[in-house]
Amino acid sequence: MALLALENLHLSFGGVAALAGVSLEINAGDFFAIIGPNGAGKTSIFNCISGIYAPARGRIVFDGRDITRLKPHQRAELRIARTFQNIALFRGMSVLDNVKIGRHVHLRSGVLACGLYYGRAAREEQAHRAIVEREIIDLLELQDIRHKIVGTLPYGQQKRVELARALALDPVLLLLDEPTAGMNAEETEDMVRFILYVARVKRLTVVMIEHDMGVVMDISDRVAVLDFGKKIAEGAPAQVQQDANVIKAYLGEDVEVA
């Protein structure tokens, strides 16, 4: 059974249909890429999965459970983590604080206990901090900058912090919205290396929106192509690459595919 199934999602803004009946099935352990021209509805799919948008019609089933009506924070509690197309970090906070918030869904102590910071609550806070420091910060090589204020970091590092924050949630499903957008070749290579590494080490199911065709073809198991809110192709990268519809609608007639 698929870990995540989108069934016939419809979403429109005013008269514009952002999603016109999109269905996808993503299996556990998959590295799934969604591609398509600007405005095809890729990010809208993510916003539906994480609960920011409510689809007008259709269902979202995660791990056998209908989550279509759940609130965004409840979906995060099911360990669905995401990054954003335009970096959405808490800019005034340190790297460590940003990543630490990813642990919020795992916090068991109540507000009062945390406020008074005694016994179990104190130990739990320390445990979360240790997890963040030991696993996430080290994994993504953020040790040197962990006390820096995020807003002061270069773009590539901010992208990495955002990935770290999503990982701190210890996700089952990780949604990456253009993780290498705006990066130079070297930064892209680093980022891809990190993503592949954590996906393997943490056995994540990943859904990635990406424009860089090289990246998509290299690392994804399956690719779905969207155009004007509809899925026009789906399959293995090589297969999609050859698809006449895709070449026509997305890549253009004469473009050489990387």
Partner: peptide, 23 residues
């Protein structure tokens, strides 16, 4: 504290805080 950090995060950006499980 984690909750205090979550409060600051919410003040900064509600949508993102929600996507991280903050009510």
């Amino acid at each position: 504290s984690l909750i205090g950090t979550a409060m600051r995060a919410t003040a900064d950006n509600q949508q993102v805080a929600q996507s991280l499980g903050v009510s």
